[in-house]
């Protein structure tokens, strides 16, 4: 079991994490943060394998990964 947590106020909705996620479980959410970015959400935490590729490519260090 693993989990990703997107830090809403840091995410800029750039999609690099969505593109890299091998399990394709990340997507742009429908809630905007204070700056108006629709932040990324994990649609299926069950499938997360904790590989942290999303966090690795995140240009805003906006993702924390648990395993």
């Amino acid at each position: 079991m693993a989990k990703v947590e997107v830090l809403k106020e840091y995410c800029k909705s750039c999609s690099l994490c969505i593109d890299i996620c091998p399990k394709k479980i990340l997507a742009i959410g429908d809630k905007a943060n204070k700056k108006g970015y629709f932040t990324v959400i994990c649609e299926d935490q069950e499938k997360c394998i904790g590989c942290a590729l999303c966090a690795t490519v995140c240009p805003d260090v906006a993702i924390e990964v648990y395993k």
């Binding site: 800029k12 750039c14 999609s15 970015y37 490519v57 995140c58 240009p59 805003d60 260090v61």
Partner: peptide, 15 residues
Amino acid sequence: PFSFCPGCTHGIIMR
């Protein structure tokens, strides 16, 4: 928070 544009990889390099 970084002030760079969305997707700008400056943030990765600084990390």
